[in-house]
Design a protein around this nucleic acid. Structure first.
Lengths: 230, 230
DNA sequence: CCTATAAGCTTATCAGACAAGTTGATGTTA
DNA sequence: TAACATCAACTTGTCTGATAAGCTTATAGG
């Protein structure tokens, strides 16, 4: 009996994506529904959906009449969680560093904006999250979830859907990255303290201080176990 | 004879998206392939692909056995160019402001990083673009393309694929937004001057000055014809 | 009242066909 | 020979109808 981990088109797309990422498919050659359907023994519908997935990541380009062509790797959708599973480890490591560098740019700025917009309800939720974190320091997985929620709550408060979506996208990278840095001993209690500093600055609606606290928090996470980038 | 503007699933997805965005579909009710296929008179394959598109924007959630359900608007993929065509004008205006606010946060920081990494080739391309802009000030559409390329070239130089992708995504919002601000008289010559200031700071590899020049440029664009946000 | 089974939804996958667009070869004409 | 028109082969787009697999709900049994 077959074990069904994912939908069939996704599995096929995964195999193809890995092959493309490692240069297993000559750029000039491209793909075709026929090939896929023969190689994987799936129906045309599945082959088509698999290609649609890759197209949504900007890895390939589909057009009627023309054979499917590969697109330059510089323009792939690195914000998609799918690529985290499909890219080779070396690239993942690089991308993690880039994601973290990005957070250091964006999140302090977000925090400064959020400080001005903070509602009482939002502050309450942050307080609750903080308490929960403090009580979950022996459980890295649970802590990670709370941590992400804490950061998302701040982002939500900045009331910018574009930024919000970006943070939401890079959430997957954060998760992967955080899983590394939180393995360090005492990383969690120390993280809680830093979150508390951010929280208190937000309560005081002190944009500058909140921004700085967030920056300190993120830079501290950089130091631990992650390749540095800028 | 039918005029084919887009692929069929995309058209269907567009109609559905607009309906969802304007609250035309009760949240509790959801959708089903059957409904779509009957209402639009398309095949099931097309109905399915249309739903897949909406799912890729996180507007709906598809799972085998369960009827399709709507997802909260806060988590839609506002980075996708598709939504630009599908959301109602009021929302678009708000989102344009948010996109611009985002740029003011990110691009100066990118520029500072880029200043350190600038290669001779990249600087050359920027110089070429700048000259072209100077010669295209009477052609808003052509100018827009050069302008976007100029900013993307800088972003590319920062060597951060996550940020790069984000800028690439928000390119569509930029295009829409720029189309507004460039209509102002003398906007183009003035823009060229500001781009030149950025370029010269980059040539000098002066990160601080480049960052500040970029910030001035973006804030100047804010003032013109766009609702202000933060 | 609770549980287990089954019927009827829904989405997932398959198969085969035709339509429509692109490409490249073929052949004709200036 | 060179430019152009036509057609054949290949590719993606769409349609139809059927079966598999997962979920929900109602029903029958304990």
């Amino acid at each position: 009996m077959e074990v069904k981990l994912q939908t069939l088109p996704k599995q096929v797309a995964g195999v193809l994506a890995r092959r493309i990422a490692t240069g297993g498919i000559p750029a000039g050659q491209g793909l075709s529904e026929q090939q896929i359907l023969q190689e994987f023994g799936v129906s045309r519908a599945v082959a088509r959906e698999a290609l649609k997935i890759l197209a949504s990541l900007d890895m390939i380009e589909i057009a009627q009449g023309r054979r499917v062509v590969l697109r330059p790797a510089e323009e792939w959708d690195y914000l998609s969680p799918l690529l985290i599973d499909w890219l080779p480890p070396e690239q993942i490591r690089e991308l993690l560093a880039e994601a973290h560098a990005t957070r250091i740019i964006i999140e302090p700025a977000i925090t400064a904006i959020a400080a001005k917009h903070m509602t009482k309800e939002s502050l309450e939720r942050l307080g609750t999250l903080l308490a929960a974190m403090s009580a979950t320091e022996d459980n890295p997985d649970g802590y990670l979830r709370l941590d992400l929620d804490f950061h998302m709550e701040i982002c939500r408060a900045a009331q910018n859907r574009i930024l919000d979506r970006f943070m939401y996208s890079s959430r997957w990278w954060q998760a992967a990255s955080r899983r590394i840095s939180n393995q360090m001993p005492h990383a969690l209690p120390s993280a809680t303290e830093m979150h508390r500093a951010i929280y208190e600055a937000l309560v005081a609606r002190d944009a500058k201080r909140a921004e700085e606290a967030m920056r300190r928090h993120l830079k501290a996470t950089t130091a631990v176990g992650l390749p540095h980038k800028d």
